Simulated scan of single mutants.
Amino acid sequence: MKNLISTNLKNLRKRYDYTQEQLAEKLNVSRQVIAKCEKGESLPDIQLCSQLAELFDVALDDLVNYSSKEVGVDVPPRGKHMFGIVTVSERGQIVIPKKAREVFNIQSGSQLIIVGDDERGLGIVPQHYMKKFFQQAFLAEEDDER
């Protein structure tokens, strides 16, 4: 765990182009606290972790547990996910990673909508999200007509 926090902290600090000193000032701690956390010599307390997650706009769990080596990209912004790479079979099938199924409550028998954009690629959306979206859009249109 120490290694993930230290790696994520260092990567996020660099992504935001902060020096250790600048980050320390924002968090009201010494530069040494940041340096020790990045080296894995100490762990930030829960309050500091919470402040870091807020500052960098990432989920606290991702700050602490996210492994960029495992997934292939750095910690994503809060509410954004990178679940890894899947391989398309000869029949065009993919296996949705377990974590994605858990986050979006996708179970056997769930219906998914595949959407596409020539420039942005494909997206997979659970059918119940799209149904809710369209219901809200129609309600908003009805309100505008009144």
Rank of each mutant, 00 (worst) to 15 (best):
V103K: 10
F138V: 14
R146S: 07
E141W: 10
K132N: 12
F104Y: 15
F56M: 07
L122Y: 14
I5R: 01
L112M: 15
G72N: 05
F83R: 04
G121W: 02
R120D: 10
S6F: 05
L43T: 09
N65R: 07
S6A: 15
K26N: 10
V95D: 04
L63N: 01
N8E: 03
D61H: 09
Y18N: 08
P44N: 05
M1P: 07
L48P: 00
V71T: 14
L48K: 13
R146V: 11
K131T: 14
S42N: 15
E38P: 07
I106W: 01
N105S: 12
S89Y: 01
R146G: 11
P97K: 05
K69F: 07
K36L: 11
P97S: 06
S6G: 13
Q22Y: 02
E142Y: 09
S42Y: 09
R120H: 11
C49F: 02
D57C: 04
G79C: 07
V95Q: 09
N65Q: 05
A100V: 02
Q111Y: 09
R101S: 10
L43G: 00
E70H: 08
K98Q: 14
S108Y: 05
D45K: 14
A100S: 03
Q20G: 13
R91F: 04
N105G: 04
K10N: 12
K36Q: 13
K69L: 08
I113R: 08
V73S: 06
V103P: 00
I34Y: 07
K99T: 11
K98Y: 12
S42W: 03
H81I: 00
L112D: 01
Y66Q: 02
P126T: 06
P76T: 05
E70S: 08
S68N: 03
K14D: 04
N105I: 03
L122W: 05
M82V: 15
E90I: 01
K36E: 13
K14Y: 05
R91D: 09
D117K: 10
E119T: 12
A53M: 04
G72I: 06
A35N: 13
K36W: 02
Q32L: 10
R91H: 08
D45H: 12
N11K: 14
V88G: 02
Q111V: 11
Y16R: 10
D61Q: 09
F133R: 10
E25D: 15
D144S: 14
T7Q: 13
Q22N: 11
N8T: 07
K80W: 05
P44M: 04
A53K: 02
Q51F: 07
N8S: 06
S68L: 03
V103W: 01
A100H: 01
E21D: 13
D118W: 03
L60F: 13
L122H: 06
Q135D: 14
N3K: 13
V86T: 13
H81L: 00
Q51N: 14
A137R: 12
A137M: 14
E54H: 11
L43M: 15
H128T: 07
